[in-house]
C-alpha cells in the first residue's frame, strides 16, 4: 500500500506519464511531482525531520543544476531515517548505461533501478516488493 509517493524529474512528460500510471494502477496513492531537485531535496529533508517520508521516491538521474546522483549524495546521511520510516527510493532513468545500473547498487539508499518508461508492471512490482514486510530490501530487483 502506497500512501504517499514522490516523482522527481525535470521532464514534464515523464511527470505526466507517471501520474497517469499511478492514477490507473493505485489511484489511492498521493503522488507529488518535483521538477526541481532543489525543491525535492528541501521537501525530503523536511519529511525526515517530520518523520513522514513518502513510501516511495522515484528519482531521475539526468537533471539540470543538481543531478540525481548529486542529490543522492546529499541524502545519504539520512539513510537510517529512510529505513526507519520505510521509504524506498528507486532510480527511474531513461539511461541504458551499465555504469548507472552498477552505481545504483553501490548506493545504500537506492532500492532499485528502474528504466523509463514507468509502467504499471513496474509499479505493481514495487508494491509487491514492499508488501510482505514493511521493511527495506536493498537487493530487490523489481523487474
Amino acid at each position: 500500500m502506497l500512501k504517499k509517493a514522490y516523482i522527481i524529474d525535470d521532464d514534464q512528460i515523464t511527470l505526466y506519464l507517471t501520474q497517469l500510471v499511478f492514477t490507473l494502477s493505485t489511484p489511492e496513492t498521493g503522488l507529488s511531482g518535483f521538477e526541481s531537485t532543489h525543491d525535492a531535496l528541501a521537501q525530503l529533508e523536511a519529511d525526515v525531520l517530520a518523520g513522514n517520508l513518502p513510501d516511495l521516491v522515484l528519482l531521475d538521474l539526468n537533471m539540470p543544476f543538481m543531478g540525481g546522483w548529486e542529490m543522492l549524495q546529499k541524502l545519504e546521511k539520512h539513510t537510517a531515517a529512510f529505513r526507519a520510516q520505510g521509504c524506498r527510493l528507486y532510480v527511474l532513468s531513461s539511461s541504458v548505461w551499465e555504469q548507472d545500473r552498477t552505481h545504483s547498487t553501490t548506493c545504500p539508499l537506492v532500492a532499485g533501478m528502474l528504466q523509463k518508461p514507468f509502467s504499471q508492471e513496474q509499479l505493481e512490482a514495487i508494491v509487491k516488493a514492499a508488501a510482505p514486510q514493511d521493511s527495506y530490501q536493498s537487493d530487490g530487483e523489481p523487474i
Binding site: 521532464d11 512528460i13 538521474l61 539526468n62 531513461s94 539511461s95 541504458v96 548505461w97 528504466q115 523509463k116
Partner: peptide, 10 residues
C-alpha cells in the same frame, strides 16, 4: 543515450 532515450521512453 539519455536524451534520446528519454523522449523515446516517453
Amino acid at each position: 543515450s539519455h536524451n534520446l532515450r528519454a523522449p523515446a521512453a516517453n
